[in-house]
Design a protein around this nucleic acid. Structure first.
Length: 482
RNA sequence: UCCUAAGUAGCUCAGCUGGUUAGAGCAUCUGACUGUUAAUCAGAGGGUCCCUGGUUCGAGUCCAGGCUUGGGAGCCA
């Protein structure tokens, strides 16, 4: 048997009449002679042609959808129309049978809901092949972007003892026996007996540790798993997701926004350049899917045009106060079509408001800045009270069409007294956060950072609509299969 | 967690104002055909109509409760 080569290296070859061996999985077997084989090296299949008159019938019977095969044969120009190149089979071996009565994937369209139930097999579909190739490329592009800029990739801890990050409910990490918890005299659980000698949780953010590193390296980023025990059941939340969190010393809010916009454009451009086949497939898939929708609900741009549009246009930057003014005088607000009407400054923006701004008003990505201090986290830098007596913080949220908030960030409060006051006001214990406050005690410097939800980015680039379809094995409330 | 829609064959779905033996396409199996592109043609098998209870002479269909899934909302990335 010749040395195995990958299908992607054959499909565009012009060197015919040479013998090759390929290995992959059968997608379809047509007309008792045409096997479509995919080995994952690219989204396209190669057609292997079997001489069924001179092939053992029991072997032919075993060429079924899903079976793993090794095929040796000659590369020839295809006589058929669908492909340029095919393999004339001289030797065929079944590496792994696939019982056609039981294999759930058929050469037909399956619903994403069904495929979610067989997530261990859905990699073998064209759609998920494309999605996870793009996920890989985006991930690689993120590292390349930061590496080119001299950022240091920092591995912040996954197990953390601080519960003051304020980013949501946490998963407890413990080796205590749940049926026999050690108790203090007052009945509370004695965490001194636990593995770490204190209560610990899975991280909800690497930001605080990132800030510590930024105060030495200048520019750092994290890219790792993040855990939130929120009972969220939406198309854009996961209990376990991946987040990219850069943190930069000597960056103000404008620098922060510039970096975020540059990062997003860089990785989208990388995907366009390196995943053309996959994006083309997903584009067609979306167009096909939208055919059944009423014209009003269809996208104005196809997937690839949408991504290019995103590259070619500046993100719209405006303050929370400006957004409120636009929303207040907007048609849906005037006509009372919003479920939550915008009446006054200070209201938290609901999804419907964000969608209006992004999808109807500006029709492009939007960066909102300078939110009311009351609705934002303790670590955000406080602006001076304005002429109307409003208190705002230097926050910035980047909103994407169809996704909502893809990035949340801020310039950080570097002034010790202001930070301590704010923590006190928000009932955040300063004693156990002393290590964090040390950055403000010794050589404090203005700095900024943000969190980019990686799966939300993958959603946007692939055009998928449910976040459970862009992570291999989604963890959501009541679901931790595989 | 709240609102909302749905759950019928392996998959995607139809099944009217309650009525006798629950259907289609694809998949599977058998046969035919053999340059196909989700091959085609003929035939066959395949059902706890989500579960529990109720109304009724009679329930896939109506009612109640539960379970599961989709969509929307909140929390956020």
């Amino acid at each position: 048997m010749a040395k195995r080569i990958q299908i992607k290296d054959i499909l565009n070859t012009s060197e015919f009449n040479r013998q090759v061996t390929i290995m992959g999985w059968v997608k379809t077997f047509r007309n008792n002679q045409f096997i479509a084989i995919n080995d994952g090296s690219c989204i396209h299949n190669i057609q292997a042609v079997v001489d069924f008159n001179n092939t053992d019938e029991t072997l032919l019977k075993r060429i079924t959808t899903g079976a793993a095969v090794a095929v040796t044969g000659n590369i020839v120009e295809s006589l058929g129309k669908g492909q340029k190149v095919e393999i004339k089979v001289t030797d065929l071996e079944i590496l792994g049978d696939s019982d056609p009565e039981k294999f759930p994937l058929q050469p037909k369209k399956h619903s994403l809901e069904f495929l979610r139930e067989i997530a261990h097999l859905r990699f073998r579909t064209n759609t998920f092949n494309a999605v996870f190739k793009i996920r890989h490329s985006l991930s690689f592009a993120v590292h390349q972007f930061f590496n080119e800029k001299g950022f240091v990739y920092m591995h912040t801890p996954i197990i953390t003892a601080s519960d003051a990050e304020g980013a949501g409910e946490m998963f407890r990490v413990s080796t205590l026996d749940p049926d026999n918890m050690p108790r203090n005299v007052d009945g509370s659980i004695n965490y001194k007996e636990d593995f770490f000698g204190k209560a610990t949780n899975l991280t909800v953010s690497g930001q605080l540790e990132g800030e510590l590193a930024a105060m030495a390296f200048g520019n750092v980023y994290t890219f790792g798993p993040t855990f939130r025990a929120e009972n969220s059941n939406t198309t854009r939340h996961l209990a376990e997701f991946w987040m990219i969190e850069p943190e930069m010393a000597f960056y103000d809010l404008d620098d922060n926004m510039d970096l975020a916009e540059e990062l997003l454009k860089y990785v989208i451009k990388y995907a366009l350049e390196n995943c053309a086949d996959e994006l083309e497939f997903l584009k067609e898939r979306l167009l096909e899917e939208e055919k059944s929708k009423p014209a009003a609900e269809r996208s104005e741009l196809d997937l690839i045009s949408k991504l290019k549009f995103c590259l070619d246009n500046e993100f719209e930057r405006l303050t929370y106060t400006q957004a409120i003014q636009i929303l207040k005088s907007s048609k849906p607000n005037q006509k009372k079509q919003f479920k939550y009407l915008i009446n006054e400054w200070g209201a938290d923006l609901q999804s419907e408001h964000e969608r209006f701004l992004v999808e109807k008003h500006f029709k492009k990505p939007v960066i909102l800045t300078n939110y009311p201090a009351e609705i934002k986290s303790f670590y955000m830098r406080q602006n001076d009270t304005d002429e109307n007596g409003k208190n705002t913080v230097r926050a910035m949220d980047i909103l994407f069409p169809g996704i909502g908030e893809i990035i949340g960030g801020s310039q950080r409060e570097e002034r010790l007294e202001k930070l301590e006051q704010r923590m006190h006001d928000m009932n955040i214990p300063t004693e156990e956060m002393s290590w964090y406050l040390d950055t403000r005690r010794f050589g404090s410097a203005f700095h900024s950072g943000f969190g980019l939800g990686f799966e939300r980015l993958v959603l946007f680039v692939t055009g998928m609509t449910n976040i459970r379809d862009v992570i291999p094995f989604p963890r959501t409330p009541k679901h931790a299969e595989f």
